[in-house]
């Protein structure tokens, strides 16, 4: 008899904690979203109330949509993030394969060289990076951002992917080699599909800082045509710090696309992170 009771208590404790913390995670977003649809008076007088007939207003959105080019900013962010991810994953997996599969001179040195990049924030090299981009005539282009983010993401990607590649059973590769399959075919057709879960993990870890970065867009690509959403929102907030309708509306606009994408891909994303474990 005792078993079910304690089980029930345990399960309600579980849900209490999980639901409680989930509420804490969502509350700030909820607060911004409800207040974005209120009039100025509504925002100040009752910040916690839902918009009602009296306080409902979309004035903030009207102001923001007329002035800022959120759609363009969003497109820039998406382009930069996707391209960086593709390059990091492809080149990272190739290098990880070479470093964990083959023995050659200087291997340890190269590993150490990459490890260096995990430890030092790339921001410290800003001035040298900018000078380089100027020489390459890449300033105010999205390519500059893609190159920097790729360089920034590679070390961690290589570290995590090597770990996975080492776990792939030897027999698989040896069997292929005996059949006379070339190294490139082995890599692209056997190895890559096998490490897919790991690739998803790396994708999540590299995507977040790239999408949210404020620094390099500010230094390398501040032009209006190349602004990312993070930079756009930051400058917009700076400009309208006192206009809460506009600020709350722009915060909502910056958050919404992320929410939509996340809702669509969250399953794959989470499966990616956890799949590494379920072998």
């Amino acid at each position: 008899m005792r078993q079910p009771v304690s089980h029930l208590a345990g399960s309600s404790f579980t849900h209490l904690v999980l639901a409680g913390y989930t509420l804490l995670s969502l509350f700030p977003l909820f607060l911004v979203l409800i207040n974005a649809f209120k009039s100025r008076a509504g925002i100040f007088d009752a910040p916690l109330a839902l918009p009602n007939g009296e306080t409902f207003s979309t004035i903030g959105f009207e102001k923001v949509l007329g002035k800022a080019h959120f759609l363009g900013f969003f497109g820039n962010s998406l382009t930069v993030t996707v391209l960086s991810l593709v390059l990091i994953l492809l080149f990272g997996a190739m290098a990880a394969w070479a470093l964990s599969e083959y023995r050659f001179r200087g291997q340890r040195l190269i590993l150490l060289f990459f490890a260096f990049g995990i430890m030092v924030p790339i921001r410290l090299g800003t001035v040298a990076i900018l000078e380089l981009m100027v020489k390459l005539e890449l300033v105010n282009t999205l390519s500059a951002l893609v190159l920097v983010y790729t360089a920034q993401g590679l070390p961690l990607a290589i570290l995590i992917l090597s770990e996975f590649i080492q776990q792939i059973p030897k027999e698989l590769k040896e069997a292929a080699r005996c059949d006379g399959v070339g190294e490139f075919t082995i890599f692209f057709q056997i190895i890559l599909p096998l490490i897919r879960p790991a690739i998803a993990t790396v994708a999540v870890f590299t995507m977040v800082p790239v999408w949210n970065d404020l620094w390099f867009p500010l230094i390398l690509a501040p032009g209006e045509a190349t602004q990312t959403i993070t930079l756009g929102v930051q400058q917009f907030i700076g400009q309208y710090a006192t206009d809460w309708n506009a600020v709350l509306a722009s915060l909502s606009l910056a958050v919404l696309p992320v929410l939509v994408i996340y809702v669509f891909f969250s399953r794959q994303l989470i499966r990616g992170i956890t799949a590494g474990a379920v072998k």
Partner: peptide
């Protein structure tokens, strides 16, 4: 007219002047 927020103006201007952009 290409303004930068006041708090970032001096540092990003220095970087752009140094970089020639």
């Amino acid at each position: 007219f290409a303004p930068t927020a006041p708090t970032e103006y001096d540092s990003s201007l220095t970087a752009r002047l140094t970089g020639g952009t």
